[in-house]
């Protein structure tokens, strides 16, 4: 039974050579070898860049407000107005850039509340099980059964149609998906011995939920967030299109498509350009999300 102690060291060194890459390096390799995720990351970074430095980049920053320039109204895309101008002569390109600010603000507002709330409920339900699970998950099911647009209509009709209320409406629907995701992951993790080992070590519920289980959910959460961002922008645009979101003159991509569509088909750029801007941002977030998913090897 007694072994020369070098034996294990030798065989372990062999293993060590194969494992010389850290998990970070391996993840980066997977991310890099997928061209669409690089494109996605580039698009998302460009959108964030445009939104942050909007006043510096926009050729005509005053177009973001209630600026009027009747001489140039309905002018098609040209050297001066890349995306053309709208019905009161405002530069659509500048308004799109400022529109990204509103969209990203909406994403941050919605996910900033929905994700922590949803994750917390998912952790509770998955960890405690029994009636906690029953109450939380059945409530989640009920919320999922409500048609999202009807819910948003109801909320903005009762309150008043503006950005904050649109945000509240979307948030109230959005947390459910995170609860379901985290609940599923935690349920699977509960079968792992490390949870039991922590219990035997005398660890508190708080410790097990937030220090042991939560780190194992982080990669799934981050993938979900990047996929979500695109859909939140889309949903916000849909609300604005219906007149329930951001009110003029604040530049919002959905509102711009809505107003522009009145002048179709002659002044096609007024609806098409903001529409393409929405497409661009959502495409970016989705490609990035897919790339992250492959990289972290999680199911969402």
């Amino acid at each position: 039974m007694t072994q020369p102690s070098g034996q294990e060291l030798n065989s372990e060194r062999d293993l060590g050579q194969q494992r010389s890459l850290t998990s970070g390096q391996m993840a980066w390799f997977r991310f890099r070898s997928n061209p669409s995720s690089i494109i996605g990351a580039f698009i998302v970074l460009s959108v964030i860049f445009l939104a942050i430095f909007a006043p510096l980049i926009a050729p005509s920053p005053q177009s973001a407000g209630s600026f009027v320039d009747f001489i140039n109204r309905h002018s098609p895309p040209s050297k001066d107005f890349w995306f053309g101008t709208d019905n009161v002569g405002r530069d659509i390109f500048s308004r799109v850039i400022f529109g990204y600010r509103v969209s990203l603000g909406l994403v941050i507002g919605v996910l900033g509340f929905a994700v922590p709330f949803g994750v917390f409920l998912g952790l509770l339900a998955g960890y405690f099980g029994n009636w906690t699970e029953f109450v939380i998950m059945r409530f989640t099911d009920i919320m999922l059964a409500i048609p999202p647009l009807a819910m948003a209509l109801a909320i903005t009709a009762v309150l008043s149609p503006n950005l904050i209320n649109a945000m509240i409406a979307i948030t109230m629907l959005w947390w459910t998906w995170h609860t379901r995701l985290i609940y599923r992951i935690v349920k699977a993790q509960m079968n792992e011995d490390y949870v039991e080992a922590a219990k035997v070590s005398g660890a508190s519920h708080f410790h097990i939920m937030f220090r042991e289980l939560l780190p194992n959910c982080v990669s799934a959460i981050s993938v979900k967030i990047s996929l979500d961002a695109g859909f939140v922008i889309l949903f916000g645009a849909a609300l604005s299109f219906l007149g329930l979101g951001v009110q003029p003159p604040t530049p919002d991509l959905g509102t711009m498509v809505s107003t522009g569509s009145e002048y179709l088909p002659e002044y096609w750029w007024e609806a098409l350009m903001p529409g393409l801007a929405i497409l661009y941002a959502i495409l970016g977030f989705n490609l990035l999300g897919d790339g992250l998913r492959d990289m972290m090897d999680v199911e969402v």
């Binding site: 792992e192 490390y194 080992a197 070590s201 042991e212 780190p215 194992n216 982080v218």
Partner: peptide, 16 residues
Amino acid sequence: IQIVYQNPGSSLNRKR
């Protein structure tokens, strides 16, 4: 009293 589990891959938390 303490316990050592069969599979250390499962009894050690991968993220810690």
